[in-house]
Design a protein around this nucleic acid. Structure first.
Lengths: 208, 208
DNA sequence: TGTAACTGGTGACCATAGTCACTGCATAAT
DNA sequence: ATTATGCAGTGACTATGGTCACCAGTTACA
């Protein structure tokens, strides 16, 4: 598909007049799977909107990580709003989980667009809202759930978001994204297998 | 102080033209300390801005709670944005931590004000931003810190936010706000006392 | 073909924190 | 004055999950 077509189909909710402005002023970028897009402490001067692919956003402290959420096509990254609005450094990390195409809106233009197209704000509010709720959900899981439940939810979310059922992922990576240790994941996957909730194939995990 | 004076002094950053509109359309309400303002699942049709006092926002599951953040004077509650924007129910609880005066903006007027005064948006973005970062901070504490560290940070924040140093609070309430059990807090406070970080008086805790 | 690197599995051990049962103490209610 | 209620302190126990050490199978590659 032509890039502009892609943009317009993914972002049609913005209205064609604004879309034309955006397409004219913005650039598209492709990133391979596994590209680090954002480091903690980095400053951001663009606002990205994902066109295709998937971006993973996570927190990190020393060598412990925690998956915060995914940015899916036609979504954006609120960290970049806050970072570009207030010019404060990012507090999270972002990495492409699949090959990903991103539309980059120059932060400097946003103000004008918002004034010209007040509905453009809706996009940002919605994104903040989505992320705020995801963080709330994460907090509740962290606080109220045991690891086996968190692991199970994690796997189901992974299945839903990648649309693949036998999921190809190593115990080590799961451990990283849940902020725990590999051995613990091995143990708990055995437990879930015993409860007939998942089945482990070679290097793959099937959710039942 | 006259109420309108109070509003204008607390919200001067909004500009006098918008402020006059707001004062004309909004109502003020006083709540006693300990009033429950928002239940999980409740719908919200107003956007509150705190004028004086303090509101505590927390998450709850069964009988376990977790303090999420405080809403201080001239701040607002993003849950109410999202709830009134999308008309979705609240996912958190709110309670007044002190006697509190709140300015209630009717959600129905917001759209018009935003169009008329685009800078009004800044307020909302900033609030989202503040809360987003507080949630991130909470997540990091939950995941990366042991309870004694969380407790100590909690006490320091409490001190800063209430401006009182011997803090008057029961072990039980601390336990609730940190999502743990009273006995654990008793134990850890002893530990912090041993480390000369706090001192327990009768029903009060002094941060050293 | 042999070695290195990565994968998962497991038993032992430990630290953190959640639970239970009970104590003593102060304050409030009757 | 007596009782009830709420608060804090403590020892014993448990469960969850993090750590360590080590094994074995697979894949990559040199």
């Amino acid at each position: 598909m032509d890039v502009n077509e892609l943009i317009k189909s993914k972002l049609s909710f913005l209205g064609s007049s604004l879309l034309n402005d955006i397409v004219a002023a913005s650039s598209q970028l492709n990133f391979e799977k596994g590209t680090e897009l954002l480091r903690e402490g980095q400053f951001v001067k663009v606002i990205p909107i994902v066109l295709t692919g998937l971006i993973k956003v996570f927190s990190r402290y020393e060598d412990k990580e925690l998956l915060l959420y995914y940015i899916k096509p036609s979504e954006s990254c609120v960290m970049s709003f806050s970072a570009s609005l207030k010019n404060t450094p990012s507090q999270v990390f972002a990495i492409t989980e699949e090959d990903t195409t991103v539309l980059l809106l120059p932060a400097s233009k946003i103000d004008g667009w918002v004034k010209k197209f007040p509905d453009f704000n809706q996009l940002f509010f919605e994104q903040y809202n989505v992320r705020y709720h995801e963080l709330l959900k994460t907090i509740n899981h962290l606080l109220f759930d045991k690891l086996d439940v968190r692991l199970y939810h994690y796997l189901i979310e992974k299945k839903d978001i990648t649309k693949k059922n036998p999921i190809k992922i190593s115990h080590r990576q799961i451990a990283n994204e849940l902020g725990t240790a590999r051995e613990v994941i091995s143990r708990l996957l055995k437990k879930l297998e015993g409860e007939n909730k998942v089945k482990q194939l070679s290097n793959q995990i099937k959710i039942l």
